[in-house]
Protein backbone atom coordinates (compact mmCIF):
# COMPACT_ATOMS: atom_id res chain seq x y z
CA UNK A 1 0.00 0.00 0.00
CA UNK A 2 2.88 2.36 0.76
CA UNK A 3 4.23 1.71 -2.72
CA UNK A 4 0.90 1.59 -4.48
CA UNK A 5 -0.03 5.29 -4.45
CA UNK A 6 3.43 6.58 -5.48
CA UNK A 7 3.56 3.88 -8.15
CA UNK A 8 0.18 4.84 -9.59
CA UNK A 9 1.00 8.55 -9.46
CA UNK A 10 4.38 8.04 -11.14
CA UNK A 11 2.76 5.98 -13.86
CA UNK A 12 0.11 8.65 -14.39
CA UNK A 13 2.72 11.42 -14.59
CA UNK A 14 4.80 9.42 -17.09
CA UNK A 15 1.74 8.74 -19.18
CA UNK A 16 0.91 12.46 -19.18
CA UNK A 17 4.50 13.55 -19.90
CA UNK A 18 4.87 11.26 -22.90
CA UNK A 19 1.30 12.02 -24.02
CA UNK A 20 0.48 8.32 -24.13
CA UNK A 21 3.37 7.56 -26.50
CA UNK A 22 3.80 4.09 -24.94
CA UNK A 23 7.54 4.64 -24.31
CA UNK A 24 7.53 2.00 -21.59
CA UNK A 25 11.11 0.81 -22.25
CA UNK A 26 12.31 4.05 -20.71
CA UNK A 27 9.15 4.57 -18.70
CA UNK A 28 9.15 1.49 -16.50
CA UNK A 29 12.64 2.08 -15.02
CA UNK A 30 11.87 5.78 -14.51
CA UNK A 31 8.58 4.97 -12.79
CA UNK A 32 10.24 2.42 -10.50
CA UNK A 33 13.04 4.82 -9.55
CA UNK A 34 10.65 7.69 -8.84
CA UNK A 35 8.45 5.41 -6.71
CA UNK A 36 11.48 4.28 -4.75
CA UNK A 37 12.62 7.90 -4.21
CA UNK A 38 9.11 8.92 -3.10
CA UNK A 39 8.93 6.13 -0.50
CA UNK A 40 12.48 6.84 0.71
CA UNK A 41 11.65 10.52 1.19
CA UNK A 42 8.56 9.58 3.18
CA UNK A 43 10.75 7.45 5.44
CA UNK A 44 13.26 10.21 6.17
CA UNK A 45 10.38 12.59 6.78
CA UNK A 46 8.68 10.46 9.36
CA UNK A 47 11.92 10.24 11.31
CA UNK A 48 11.18 13.65 12.78
CA UNK A 49 7.64 14.47 11.78
CA UNK A 50 4.47 12.39 11.75
CA UNK A 51 3.08 11.68 8.28
CA UNK A 52 -0.60 12.42 7.82
CA UNK A 53 -2.61 10.40 5.36
CA UNK A 54 -4.41 12.24 2.62
CA UNK A 55 -8.13 11.67 2.31
CA UNK A 56 -8.48 11.32 -1.46
CA UNK A 57 -12.23 11.84 -1.34
CA UNK A 58 -11.70 15.29 0.16
CA UNK A 59 -9.38 16.39 -2.66
CA UNK A 60 -12.06 17.74 -5.06
CA UNK A 61 -13.62 19.86 -2.33
CA UNK A 62 -10.22 21.24 -1.35
CA UNK A 63 -9.34 21.87 -5.00
CA UNK A 64 -12.49 23.97 -5.47
CA UNK A 65 -11.82 25.89 -2.26
CA UNK A 66 -8.23 26.45 -3.40
CA UNK A 67 -9.23 27.63 -6.89
CA UNK A 68 -11.72 30.11 -5.43
CA UNK A 69 -9.15 31.45 -2.97
CA UNK A 70 -6.47 31.70 -5.70
CA UNK A 71 -8.83 33.85 -7.71
CA UNK A 72 -9.45 36.05 -4.68
CA UNK A 73 -5.74 36.26 -3.93
CA UNK A 74 -4.85 37.28 -7.48
CA UNK A 75 -7.61 39.86 -7.72
CA UNK A 76 -6.77 41.24 -4.27
CA UNK A 77 -3.10 41.71 -5.07
CA UNK A 78 -3.92 43.17 -8.52
CA UNK A 79 -6.32 45.69 -6.96
CA UNK A 80 -3.68 46.78 -4.46
CA UNK A 81 -0.95 47.03 -7.08
CA UNK A 82 -2.93 49.11 -9.55
CA UNK A 83 -3.91 51.86 -7.10
CA UNK A 84 -2.08 55.17 -7.74
CA UNK A 85 -0.29 54.60 -4.44
CA UNK A 86 0.10 50.87 -3.74
CA UNK A 87 -2.63 50.13 -1.22
CA UNK A 88 -0.78 47.91 1.21
CA UNK A 89 -0.34 48.00 4.94
CA UNK A 90 2.06 45.14 5.55
CA UNK A 91 2.77 43.69 8.94
CA UNK A 92 3.57 40.59 10.91
CA UNK A 93 1.05 38.25 12.42
CA UNK A 94 1.96 35.75 15.13
CA UNK A 95 -0.44 32.98 14.47
CA UNK A 96 -1.16 29.96 16.64
CA UNK A 97 -2.15 27.03 14.50
CA UNK A 98 -4.27 24.09 15.55
CA UNK A 99 -2.86 21.91 12.76
CA UNK A 100 -0.67 19.22 14.34
CA UNK A 101 3.03 19.05 13.58
CA UNK A 102 3.86 16.93 10.55
CA UNK A 103 2.88 16.75 6.90
CA UNK A 104 -0.34 18.68 7.40
CA UNK A 105 1.47 21.61 8.99
CA UNK A 106 4.11 21.70 6.27
CA UNK A 107 1.27 21.78 3.80
CA UNK A 108 -0.39 24.62 5.70
CA UNK A 109 2.83 26.65 5.85
CA UNK A 110 3.44 26.30 2.14
CA UNK A 111 -0.08 26.78 0.83
CA UNK A 112 -0.92 29.74 3.06
CA UNK A 113 1.44 31.73 0.83
CA UNK A 114 -0.95 31.25 -2.07
CA UNK A 115 -3.98 32.47 -0.14
CA UNK A 116 -5.09 36.10 -0.10
CA UNK A 117 -2.78 38.39 1.83
CA UNK A 118 -0.75 35.80 3.75
CA UNK A 119 2.80 34.50 3.55
CA UNK A 120 4.49 32.21 6.04
CA UNK A 121 7.93 33.47 7.03
CA UNK A 122 8.76 31.32 9.99
CA UNK A 123 7.84 27.87 10.90
CA UNK A 124 8.58 26.12 14.14
CA UNK A 125 8.64 22.41 14.88
CA UNK A 126 8.48 22.89 18.64
CA UNK A 127 5.74 25.45 19.15
CA UNK A 128 2.42 26.08 17.46
CA UNK A 129 3.39 29.61 16.56
CA UNK A 130 3.83 30.52 12.94
CA UNK A 131 5.04 33.91 11.80
CA UNK A 132 2.94 35.14 8.91
CA UNK A 133 3.55 38.20 6.83
CA UNK A 134 0.29 39.91 5.91
CA UNK A 135 -0.25 42.37 3.13
CA UNK A 136 -2.91 44.36 4.97
CA UNK A 137 -3.05 44.37 8.75
CA UNK A 138 -6.59 45.84 8.68
CA UNK A 139 -8.06 42.64 7.27
CA UNK A 140 -9.01 39.86 9.67
CA UNK A 141 -6.47 37.39 8.34
CA UNK A 142 -6.71 35.04 11.33
CA UNK A 143 -10.32 34.29 10.38
CA UNK A 144 -9.29 33.24 6.86
CA UNK A 145 -6.52 31.09 8.29
CA UNK A 146 -9.00 29.30 10.58
CA UNK A 147 -11.10 28.48 7.55
CA UNK A 148 -8.08 27.10 5.74
CA UNK A 149 -7.28 25.01 8.81
CA UNK A 150 -10.78 23.47 8.81
CA UNK A 151 -10.33 22.54 5.14
CA UNK A 152 -6.90 21.03 5.79
CA UNK A 153 -8.33 18.98 8.65
CA UNK A 154 -10.84 17.53 6.20
CA UNK A 155 -8.13 16.92 3.60
CA UNK A 156 -5.87 15.01 5.99
CA UNK A 157 -8.54 13.26 8.07
CA UNK A 158 -7.43 15.11 11.18
CA UNK A 159 -9.72 15.29 14.19
CA UNK A 160 -11.47 18.66 14.27
CA UNK A 161 -9.59 20.96 16.61
CA UNK A 162 -11.27 22.52 19.60
CA UNK A 163 -10.93 26.23 19.12
CA UNK A 164 -7.78 26.45 21.23
CA UNK A 165 -5.92 28.44 18.62
CA UNK A 166 -5.75 31.99 19.80
CA UNK A 167 -5.94 34.71 17.21
CA UNK A 168 -2.66 36.57 17.48
Amino acid sequence: MRYLVPLLLSTLVWWILTEAAQAWVVGVPVILVSTWVAVRLQDTDSGSAPTHRLNWFAVPRFALFFLWQSLQAGLDVAKRTLKPVPDINPGTLYYYTSIPHGTARYFFGAIVGLFPGTLCTEFSEDTDQLVLHVLDTDVDIALDCRRLEREIERLFKLPAADQQGRPA
Partner: peptide
Protein backbone atom coordinates in the same frame (compact mmCIF):
# COMPACT_ATOMS: atom_id res chain seq x y z
CA UNK B 1 6.75 37.99 -2.87
CA UNK B 2 3.01 38.36 -2.23
CA UNK B 3 2.55 40.16 -5.54
CA UNK B 4 4.61 37.85 -7.69
CA UNK B 5 3.31 34.53 -6.32
CA UNK B 6 -0.39 35.28 -6.18
CA UNK B 7 -0.75 37.24 -9.40
CA UNK B 8 1.38 34.83 -11.41
CA UNK B 9 -0.45 31.77 -10.13
CA UNK B 10 -3.75 33.22 -11.21
CA UNK B 11 -2.19 34.37 -14.49
Amino acid sequence: IHAITKADNLG
